[in-house]
C-alpha cells in the first residue's frame, strides 16, 4: 500500500483533480452547484470570480470581438495562476483530453508500439505553428478558429452539457496517439498546450534533477510525455526549465533513486550568479 502511494501519489492526485473538477462542472449544470460553473472556456468560481481561457480570449481579440471585462479579468487570473504553478500544469492536472492521451500512451508502451516505431516523423514545435495559425484564421475569418474545433472544449463541454458526436473526436485522438504519432495530440499539435508552454517558461514550480543520485536507468525518459525536456538526466544537476514540461511528476514517481523532485525555481540566486 505504501509503495503504491509512493509510486503513484502524483498520478492519484492528478486524476483526483481532473475528475474532481469535471464533477464540479457537471454538478453545476446537473444539480445547480455554485462552486464552479461553466466550462474550461470560461467559468464562474463561487458565482463571483470569472475564469477564462487566455488563448480563447486571444482568438476573440484577433477575430475583432470587443473583449468584455469579465473575459479579460478571467484570462489574467488564469494566466497568472499558471504562470506561477507551471504553464502546462493545465495539461496534466486539469485538461480532460489528458485522460485520453495518457491512456493511449500507456497502451503504446504496454503493446510495445514504441519499440517498433521509434522514428517520430513530426516536430514538437508544430504546436507553435498551430497556435499562430489559429490566431491568423481567427483574424481572417472573424470567428474564434480553434474554439470551433478544439477537442478540449468539445470533450469538456460534452461531459458537462452532452457529448453528441464528440466521442468520435476522442476516438480519433486516441487512435492517432496510439498508432500514428507518440504523444501526437498533446505533445505535437495542441495549440493550447503550446500557449501554456510559452507561459510555463517562467513559472516557479520546477522538477529538479540531482545527478549525484542518478543511476541512468532512464525510466523517467520512458514515462515522460515530453521526454526532450529531460535532456539533463544523468548529465548535470539542473531544474527542468523547458516550458513544455507539464509538471505531471510521473518522472518524480518512477525514479527509484531519488534523483528527481519538485523544487521552486531559485530566482534570486540565479540573478546573483548572473545565470
Amino acid at each position: 500500500m505504501r509503495t503504491i502511494w509512493n509510486n503513484y501519489r502524483y498520478l492519484i492526485l492528478r486524476r483526483t483533480t481532473q475528475l474532481g473538477l469535471l464533477l464540479l462542472y457537471f454538478g453545476a449544470n446537473a444539480w445547480g452547484w455554485g462552486l464552479l460553473m461553466g466550462n474550461l472556456s470560461s467559468s464562474l468560481f463561487l458565482s463571483t470570480v470569472p475564469l477564462s481561457d487566455p488563448y480563447a480570449a486571444l482568438q476573440m481579440a484577433a477575430a475583432g470581438a470587443v473583449l468584455a471585462t469579465d473575459i479579460i479579468v478571467g484570462a489574467l487570473i488564469i494566466s497568472t495562476f499558471y504562470l506561477l504553478i507551471g504553464g502546462r500544469a493545465f495539461c496534466s492536472w486539469v485538461c480532460p483530453v489528458n485522460l485520453v492521451t495518457d491512456a493511449a500512451a500507456i497502451l503504446r508502451r504496454k503493446l510495445n508500439v514504441d519499440s517498433i516505431s521509434k522514428r517520430q516523423p513530426a516536430s514538437r514545435s508544430m504546436r507553435y505553428w498551430v497556435l499562430v495559425l489559429g490566431l491568423i484564421i481567427s483574424l481572417m475569418m472573424g470567428v474564434t478558429a480553434f474554439e470551433f474545433i478544439s477537442p478540449i472544449s468539445m470533450l469538456h463541454r460534452g461531459i458537462v452539457f452532452g457529448l453528441g458526436f464528440g466521442w468520435a473526436a476522442m476516438l480519433i485522438i486516441f487512435l492517432f496517439d496510439m498508432f500514428v504519432l507518440k504523444n501526437g495530440w498533446c505533445g505535437h499539435i495542441c495549440p493550447l498546450g503550446g500557449f501554456y508552454s510559452i507561459l510555463g517558461k517562467v513559472s516557479l514550480i520546477r522538477v529538479h534533477h540531482n545527478v549525484e543520485n542518478c543511476t541512468s536507468c532512464m525510466k523517467c525518459k520512458t514515462v515522460c510525455p515530453e521526454h526532450q525536456v529531460l535532456h539533463m538526466i544523468a548529465k548535470e544537476s539542473a531544474d527542468v526549465l523547458s516550458g513544455e514540461c507539464t509538471n505531471c511528476a510521473r518522472c518524480v514517481e518512477v525514479c527509484e533513486d531519488d534523483a528527481l523532485s519538485f523544487s521552486i525555481r531559485k530566482l534570486i540566486k540565479n540573478k546573483k550568479s548572473g545565470e
Partner: peptide, 16 residues
Amino acid sequence: EDDFLRTCIKCGLCVE
C-alpha cells in the same frame, strides 16, 4: 450573429 460567433466563448453559463 457575426459578432456573436466571434464573441461567444461557449462557456454554457446561460444554459446553466
